[in-house]
Design a protein around this nucleic acid. Structure first.
Lengths: 195, 195
DNA sequence: GGATAACCACACCGGTCGGTATAATCGGGG
DNA sequence: CCCCGATTATACCGACCGGTGTGGTTATCC
């Protein structure tokens, strides 16, 4: 036995596993999960297919590792952007600034979580759980911020802020609306209780 | 030569072609484009693979036909829902009612156009053009309606209404937020000029 | 009655899919 | 020194991928 199929996100990745995961971030995101085979992935990472299967166990497990790391990075990115800001209102608006910069730096491939849901038809696929948890976290963030602005009904307001966020991503990706995040920000500003 | 690869959306479909397209609507939508092979499609339609290729020429062309018909149906559905309504404000709100009913009737697979963009990594794929045109049409509709409500800045307002629409679809699909369309409707109502 | 279009059955193509098997090599720690 | 984990190289597996070729049946229209 080489090594058990690696538990969830256990001990630090071996160098080869790290390179595989880096390649997954690049290839799965830009070309889609289903159109990238394990042979291509191995070649891109400069690594043997055998090593991938020794480290991750299966393509599905690698997909989950890829999505989980995306999620972790997203939370860290957003938290880092919001932390220095003084109040909830500024933080809400800053989420759209952060989104706009993120979109501008990642060519029109949209949200990896939404894309994964499109590519993984099985509702029980563990990758869809990761996607759902990422959206749940973001929704919770917006609801908390909405509550912090003193809104009368923070739940639905937070949900609406999330929808503007997701909708701006779609508009940018499908439509090429480069100012979508700024437009969402203005709409969010109008929805928040008047300052 | 059997028949040229059938121009865009020319003359009425033959019975076999109709069945293939119906199967495409069901299988491509629920299982994704890339995970449905031509053999499965032929079997599901009760038709020979040869016939599919005689009618449509290639899988890519079939995908385009599938997406184009979705687009046509979507426009007809929405136009039908809005036509009887008296004014622009009522029509805007009705789009979210129509979306909510549509989502409730199609199990958590989201927008076929957004999904297609996730599944077709090539930006030049003709299927992505169809997706973009569908979103452009919907954006135009929202902008026109926004202008009809007498809004000061109908362009950005229409875009925000579109984002609520797309965001509600994502929230429903990924998060399972069954009331997402109703929440989007309330937010849209707050964004429209006070009646 | 002959041409034409639509369809069927079936066999076949090279390539790629996710995944496995075998064996060798390398480096570090006990 | 020897073992062990990580990695390499290479060959292989059955299944499926998108797509084609051949030949025959049926119905319709001129």
């Amino acid at each position: 036995m080489p090594t058990p199929p690696t538990p969830p996100t256990a001990r630090p990745l071996t160098p080869a596993a790290r390179r595989v995961l880096d390649s997954a971030h690049e290839l799965f995101y830009t070309r889609g999960i289903n159109t990238v085979g394990m042979d291509l992935l191995a070649e891109h990472a400069g690594i043997t297919k055998k090593t991938i299967y020794d480290r991750f166990g299966s393509k599905d497990a690698l997909v989950v590792a890829y999505l989980s790391e995306r999620d972790r990075r997203w939370r860290a990115y957003l938290n880092g952007r919001l932390a220095p800001l003084p109040d909830a209102r500024a933080r809400v608006l800053a989420t759209y600034d952060a989104l706009g910069e993120w979109l501008a730096g990642h060519g029109r491939r949209g949200c990896a979580m939404v894309n994964a849901c499109a590519e993984l038809p099985d509702p029980e696929h563990p990758g869809r759980r990761v996607a759902r948890e990422q959206k749940e976290w973001t929704r919770g963030l917006y609801r908390d911020l909405a509550a912090g602005t003193g809104a009368a009904d923070p739940g639905p307001l937070g949900d609406a802020l999330l929808m503007l966020h997701e909708g701006a991503t779609v508009a940018f990706t499908v439509l090429g609306a480069t100012d979508s995040a700024a437009t969402a920000r203005r709409a969010a500003d109008a929805l928040l209780p008047s300052s």
